[in-house]
Structure formats: C-alpha cells, structure tokens
Amino acid sequence: MAARGTALSLAIAASLTVSHVGQAQLRNVELELVLAIDTSTSVNADEYELQRTGLARAFRSANVQSAIASLGEQGIAVAVVQWAGPGQQRLAVDWTWMKGPQGAERFAEDLSAMPRAVSGFTDIAGAITHSMNQILTNNYVGDRLAIDVSGDGTSDENDPIFARDRALAQGITINGLAIHSDEYDLGDLAQMGLVHHYTTRVIGGPGHFLIQASDFDDFARAIEKKLVREIIGPAFAER
C-alpha cells in the first residue's frame, strides 16, 4: 500500500509539474488577432495576389508598425486563416508574436510567401468557427480577442449569425472588411446587400466595425486602416 501511495504521489506531482510548464509557455499579449481572408471561387488569382501583397504591405507600413509598438512589451499575436466553403479553412500563416517593426517585418515576409490553400463556396460561418478555435487553442492569452473577416460576397453556405454569436460568447470581437467586386456584386443593390450581410450577420462585439474596399485594388489601403484601428483598440481608435 505504501508503494502504491508513493507512486500515486509521484504521478500527481508529475502532472502538476506538466501543468505548470504548460502555463509557463503561455504568453500574455495585448491582442490576439486572426486575419481571415476570402479565397473562395469568386476570388481569382489576381485578386488573391492583391490580398496577399496588401497584407504584407500593411505590416511593413509605418502606421501599422507604430500601432504595434504603442502597445508596449506585451505586443500582439497574429495569424492568417484562408477560408472558402464548408471544411475549406486553413491556418495559412501560424501565430506570430510581435511588439515592434522587426516582428512585423518578419510577419510580412511570411505573408509574401503565403500560397493559396483553399477554394470553393462562401462559408463565412466556417471561417468564424475555425478562427475562433485558433484563438481558443493557441499559446497566447490576450487582453483583447478579435477576428478580422474580409470577403467579397455573402454566405451561400450556412448562416454566419450562429457562429458569430458563439464567438461573441467567448469574448471575441468580429470586425469586417467588405470588398466590392463589380464582377460578382452586380451593381449598387448587391453592394448594399453585402454591407447589410456583414453588418447584421457577421460583425459584433465591443468596438466592432466594418470597413469597405471599393475593389480588390483598394484592399491594401483598407486593410492598413483596419489593422491600425484593431491594434490600437476601440478606446483610442478613430470612430
């Protein structure tokens, strides 16, 4: 019995040690941010390239790098998810911690080399759920949690409102970037429908907002503006 008691004590001690090691590996950050970009069929090769290069350019910009540096030593953790139809979501650039220009430049290099991973229908609900799971299972503990969903169309698979509400219940804010595409949006009425869809069924949470890009050529400008606002936070960013 004594031997069994000793073995049990050692097992408990070992489990506690593993638990403490796991906790020690967690990093506290000001912001955990998933950039969820649309790679569905409506996004052609040139438009995907504009998203990829636009993101890389944004993280190389003085505005974004200054915003990151303004948060201090905790910094931020960022990842990129590509999404399309049901089951078509991929972590395209893994979680990266940065607190200033050097980290942002390294992340921009990873973005510049990011291949297209998925294509298919438009499942914004799947994009939100996958992004939420990335936040809940990474090695960071953020004071703020956010998903940045960008896309050029409304959901044709699954209503995103339920996935949005699950994410909001986890304390995650969802912001949107609606990209207008003449090829698929088919005029002003459809563009209004895209904005309405994002506003009522996609975005939500404290300080949430939607930014519009007039087309994919405008993506780089819009995503830089959006990143600065997300990084600095709703208490300080321009309303």
Rank of each mutant, 00 (worst) to 15 (best):
D94F: 06
I68G: 03
W95K: 01
S40L: 02
A14G: 12
A45W: 01
L31R: 01
L50N: 14
N175M: 05
A36S: 14
E183A: 15
A3N: 03
T137Q: 11
E105G: 14
N44S: 11
E183S: 13
A62E: 14
G193M: 10
S119A: 07
H130G: 07
A45C: 08
G5Q: 13
I223K: 13
F162I: 11
S19F: 15
P234V: 03
A13C: 08
Q89Y: 04
S66L: 08
R239E: 03
F219Y: 15
F219I: 13
T199G: 14
I161P: 00
G205E: 03
G120N: 05
K225V: 15
L210Y: 02
E32Y: 00
S112Y: 00
A178Y: 02
G100I: 00
R144W: 05
V93I: 10
I211N: 13
E32F: 00
I174P: 02
G22K: 07
Q212L: 11
G207P: 03
A7I: 14
A77S: 07
D159W: 07
E47R: 12
Q82D: 15
H197G: 07
A167F: 03
L55T: 06
A69V: 02
F162C: 01
L186K: 13
A213H: 07
T173R: 09
P234M: 02
R239H: 09
L55G: 02
D110K: 10
S9E: 10
G85S: 07
V202G: 08
R4Q: 13
A213V: 11
H196N: 15
E109M: 09
T200M: 11
L177Y: 03
I76A: 01
I161E: 12
A11I: 14
G193A: 10
A222I: 12
D94W: 03
V93Y: 00
R239V: 02
I174R: 02
A125Y: 04
D123Y: 03
L136C: 02
A24L: 15
A167G: 13
Q102N: 15
I161S: 13
I203G: 08
R106T: 12
A77T: 01
N158D: 13
D148L: 06
L186D: 10
H197F: 13
N138T: 01
A84T: 10
Q65H: 05
F107M: 03
L210M: 14
G151D: 06
D218R: 11
N63D: 15
V80S: 04
S9F: 07
E30V: 01
L111S: 05
D215K: 06
I174L: 13
N175Q: 11
A125C: 04
L111N: 06
Q82K: 06
E30L: 00
K226F: 10
F162Q: 09
A235Y: 08
S15F: 12
A79W: 00
Q102I: 13
Q89H: 09
V29A: 02
D159P: 06
D218V: 14
I68M: 03
T122K: 08
A104W: 06
N63W: 08
A104V: 06
G5R: 14
A11G: 09
A235F: 10
E157C: 09
F219G: 15
R166L: 12
T199F: 05
S61F: 14
E224L: 12
